[in-house]
Design a protein around this nucleic acid. Structure first.
Lengths: 349, 349
DNA sequence: TCGGCCAGTGAAACCGATTACACTAGTCTA
DNA sequence: TAGACTAGTGTAATCGGTTTCACTGGCCGA
């Protein structure tokens, strides 16, 4: 007998408010084993005799036992949660990405915490994310945002940057190969109309994708020996409204009328299309239009929009895979995946 | 002296792999106080002398101290994380909702974990969500899904059900008042065309919103004494393609041609619009169309779609507010909010 | 001057898991 | 048949916080 004075009535469960959830010691008691054995049944069953394990499993079932993730996390320092930072969830662009990422994460046994932060150069999302919690972070950074990238670096957890221009020590990256798709789109246009009448209506000036797409436009036109190229490149925002305003303005007041428009994304293209229809400019007969993204609005427009497909689902899936891989083995070299874009010709060009 | 044999060199930090994060005892040491005092500075500063608190805060800053959420959660049983279950994130419908929910959650100091589960009658999302972790759950359940609702009930945490038909003991609910908007929309149509030529192209048969919208259609037509109403109600899915197929079929083969279509949502309406344009049926001259949701595609279409606005952002915001309120005080009676819908007339009707 | 009270603080128990280490009993080898 | 080894299990330390309780010293009123 180890002690004479100390024979408590076998310490029983605290009555934590009215939590009825059972804990590991309940299971241990019921199965007639120690908590260590219960833990082993869960985490390394090969160490436990079959008969014992069976008894423990039954006890877990009967008590509907679920391990407390706080206690577990306190030891293992992992939660099975990945953080995802996106500029916004509004459009389908990020929705499609999130959908695929969530599916892949679930497959790998992870959950996604989301945070959006539209403002460039704000790291609020990263700040408010409960980072001590997360096993990894995936951030879509299509704008220069040093604050965000830096604060992700500070987290020193597995991270995947999508679309970011900045390199980050030890971090996986995914980039969108805008150039190939954009080049194909612009070539497609200049083969059908005079290069001097081709216009580019781009997205935000500082957006990396915008920059790539505009540059591809310029390159193809230079290649064709077009002149006054810069005058035919406009930046605005990724919205229907911007495309609409631009087209209304340009189609009515310009002297050299556009015969082809390469839009920075599908929304812009749809705006241009609407303005053209309103002005009685037939598409594709008098105005050819190509969008970018392959979004649902592009499929919904009529004439159906020619567009450059961005494989959003693939990006989401790949991001999670990279992140999970890096969590499993932090020593492997960070990789840089470039996802292709592909011109899909429909009726608007 | 309490013990003779036991004078360790003041126990120092374990070298947890290479985690450089500082813990509460580091802060305590640096500030020359106990861990209890540090904890008090964080959680109930009024108990600590100003000078002491100031010293502790400086120490926290200098060490860039962040409380370990596992340890904290182990005691307080709360994480500041809400789970959100949606059928999918694909369309902008749920995206808009999520966007607003995230913003509101962040404002209230919470984060969102997301899970999507498109399959009706599957509770996988709820199962795979790390529920021991969550302070609350918000679920959008537009389809009958007893499994999901039941498993949310089993969680016994604060929950908000959106759009669900089932009641759940002690659970807040939000419903969309489809009827008022739908009624207004159908009245709007029958005032402009013969009630006998009005058709409804609905979404999935089992979707609660679909059911409400279809029923409102029937009610208005009955009110007008229309006949053969059931023949003019079709169910399909919430997609452009379904609307397109329906219209192609109906506009070409039916004898009594539709002059007005009330669509189950904007996607369907856009599909109808595209088919009509392709068949040379002018909208709104020969065919009036009203959609539902007030989505971005509706604004992008031309003619601009008349539609019934669903305040998705409001729903997201309200869901988080209800959930947070319920977490703060679980004893308050669950409430049931009904959000209105509003007809917005544009150019398609 | 004494007792009571209060503000401020620390020591230590506790939350519920994981896991290093110790131990037992059986099997195998020499 | 002793010794080495192994499979299976339990004890107790540990993770990093929160919180109860006990304690100290200063101030107050009687």
């Amino acid at each position: 007998m180890r002690s004479v004075y100390n024979t408590p009535v076998k310490k029983k469960r605290r009555s934590t408010r009215f939590s009825t959830a059972s804990v590991i010691s309940d299971v241990a008691d019921r199965a007639g084993v120690s908590t260590a054995t219960v833990s082993r049944v869960i985490n390394s069953p090969e160490l436990v005799a079959d008969a014992t394990a069976e008894r423990v499993r039954r006890a877990m079932d009967e008590l509907d036992y679920r391990p407390n993730l706080f206690a577990k996390g306190l030891i293992t320092r992992s939660t099975g949660v990945l953080g995802v930072i996106l500029p916004d969830f509004h459009g389908e662009f990020y929705g499609a990405l999130l959908q695929a990422a969530d599916a892949e994460a679930r497959r790998a046994g992870y959950n996604l915490i989301v945070a959006s932060d539209a403002r460039p150069d704000s790291a609020d999302a990263a700040q408010s994310l409960p980072v001590h919690f997360l096993d990894g972070v995936i951030a879509f950074v299509p704008f220069p945002n040093d604050a965000l990238v830096r604060s992700i670096g500070d987290l020193s957890i597995s991270a995947v940057l999508i679309d970011a221009q900045q390199e980050l020590e030890g971090t996986d990256r995914i980039s969108i190969d805008n150039t190939s798709g954009a080049t194909a789109a612009v070539r497609h246009l200049v083969e059908r109309t005079d290069a001097d009448d081709c216009f580019h209506v781009g997205g935000p000036e500082t957006n990396y994708d915008s920059i790539d797409r505009a540059e591809a436009f310029r390159a193809v036109l230079r290649e064709r020996g077009a002149s006054g190229i810069d005058d035919r490149v406009a930046s605005g925002e990724f919205s229907i409204d911007w495309g609409y305003r631009w087209a209304l303005d340009t189609l009515t007041t310009r002297t050299g009328r556009p015969t082809a428009v390469f839009a920075g994304n599908d929304d812009i293209a749809v705006g241009v299309l609407n303005a053209a229809r309103q002005l009685g400019v037939a598409c594709p007969d008098r105005l050819r239009i190509v969008g970018f993204d392959g979004s649902r609005v592009s499929a919904a427009s009529s004439p159906k929009l020619s567009t450059v497909q961005v494989p959003l689902a693939e990006i989401g899936t790949k991001a999670v895979q990279m992140c999970v891989r890096h969590i499993a083995d932090p020593t492997i070299n960070p990789s840089h995946a470039v996802v292709p874009t592909r011109l899909a010709v429909h009726d608007s060009s």
